[in-house]
Amino acid sequence: MANYNVEITNGSGSAEMKKGTYSVTVVANGYEATTLSPSSYTATESAGSGSFTVSANGVLTLIFNETGASGGTPVTSGSVVMTDSTGATEYGSAVTINANGEAVFNNVPYNSGTPYVLYFVQKATDDNHNLYEGVITVNMANATQTEYVLNSPIAEQSFTLTDANYAGLPVASATMTFTGE
């Protein structure tokens, strides 16, 4: 029986503890308990703190293509990053989307019973496709999982430029510049 069980919620928890050295274990849905670091903690007579980390071993592959499903034409470059549910806070480094439209995230948590929910934001795509707007949500239930994300192809836009005073008179030569807002 443990001397103390400390509940962790959103990364934090605390307890009144007697001084001494303790071995520490973790129960965390989606994570490998053996990866807890450090594995011991020494409490003194004074208030103290301890920082722990734990690791998972799931692999998630995000495939960005023109259909958002298997078989679609993939994008050929870009990047995507893990975030919080709002997409505002980024976690870790952005992962590159390769020439097959794939971005692989290693060491992600998963759980077959209650899937671990992960969030991502696409940062960039290739010149021929539109970026996925908003937050990508993945329910990670399996150790290895693949999800598809829609990047619609850029549609061709056609323009005419005519004289404003002589209706229908085409402007022989001009350059129009379009700047994104």
């Binding site: 994570y31 208030a47 301890g50």
Partner: peptide
């Protein structure tokens, strides 16, 4: 006893 505070974070992300 004394109050001990802890954080637990994902090691990779």
């Amino acid at each position: 006893t004394a109050l001990q505070s802890f954080t637990l974070y994902d090691k990779n992300y």
